[in-house]
């Protein structure tokens, strides 16, 4: 089973050199801004910024190409679904209707719908590079300490670190258990009838659950034995001081986001209307 996970790699770039905290905050600020605003001008500006950052990170294309294809397929399907379910959503939002092409029944292509769906796509396009960038350029070890630094309880931050530590192990176990099950005639693929597949899934999940519970016992004993949870705070081995560059980047991100919000909501609506 080929495993294609997005993985951090150590490249010398200005983005890699930024502190994990900075990248985490930029990702959060960028995502929230991208999610809330629907103003085309702001979205385009944000997209330009996030693509520039991506370019600066020098992450080779093949490291994320697979995920990029998945994203494209996913967003295409989403676009199609929006059109099928709500072909007049654009008209509803922008209040005008410029029909470009009648398709069939109550399906017509309007300029408003096109523009609305273009904006939906833009929103996704703004967030994806930021998320990929955060994932590909942040040392996973810095992830937990960064979360703790921005106020998340260290126990929860550490839980996330444990998740990343044990994904490969749990995955290996899943593969082992399901191949052994397959030898005994337990199959989850399309070769079996759906009802049977569900029943067969229990035969694979049950040993997986039991061994996961066993693992939880072992790991918690190990954490206890090394004093985890004894204090109200803890320190982190993988942590770096914030530099002036970090401060500058963070300030820029906050200012940019504030500007985007101001421009968007200046007229009291999150949408930018080109039709009036």
């Amino acid at each position: 089973m080929a495993v294609k996970l997005l993985a951090y790699s150590d490249i010398a770039s200005p983005v890699h050199r930024l502190n994990g905290v900075t990248k985490l905050l930029c990702f959060i600020i960028g995502s929230v801004t991208g999610m809330v605003i629907y103003d085309t001008r702001c979205l385009l500006a944000l997209l330009a910024v996030s693509l520039t950052a991506f370019y600066l990170s020098k992450v080779p294309f093949k490291q994320y190409s697979f995920v990029l294809y998945l994203i494209l397929i996913f967003s295409l399907l989403n676009q199609l679904a929006i059109f099928l379910f709500a072909p007049e959503q654009g008209t509803l939002i922008y209040g005008t209707r410029h029909e470009l092409l009648h398709i069939a029944g109550h399906y017509s292509l309007t300029a408003e719908q096109l523009f609305y769906q273009f904006n939906v796509m833009l929103k996704y396009a703004v967030v994806v590079p930021l998320a990929l960038l955060f994932l590909l350029t942040t040392d996973p070890s810095e992830f937990a300490s960064s979360l703790n630094r921005i106020g998340v309880s260290y126990k929860i931050a550490y839980a996330i670190s444990l998740t990343m530590r044990y994904i490969p192990d749990v995955q290996q176990e899943f593969v082992n258990i399901s191949t052994a099950a397959q030898a005994r005639g337990i199959d989850l693929s399309r070769k079996e009838k759906p009802g049977r597949r569900l029943k067969n899934a229990v035969s694979i999940l049950f040993p997986l659950v039991l061994s996961t519970l066993e693992r939880i016992e072992k790991v918690s004993a190990a954490l206890e034995l090394r004093g985890f949870g004894r204090g109200r705070r803890r320190t982190w081995y993988k942590t770096r001081p914030l530099t002036t560059t970090d401060a500058a980047v963070l300030t820029a991100a906050v200012l940019l986001s504030a500007a985007a919000f101001t421009v968007t909501f200046w007229d009291g609506s999150r949408f930018y209307n080109i039709f009036v």
Binding site: I156, Y158, A159, I160, T163, V170, I216, E224, F228, G229
Partner: peptide, 12 residues
């Protein structure tokens, strides 16, 4: 501690 580990590994 057990709950924290259960959260981490459960999420995995």
């Amino acid at each position: 501690v057990r709950t924290i580990v259960a959260i981490g590994i459960g999420a995995a």
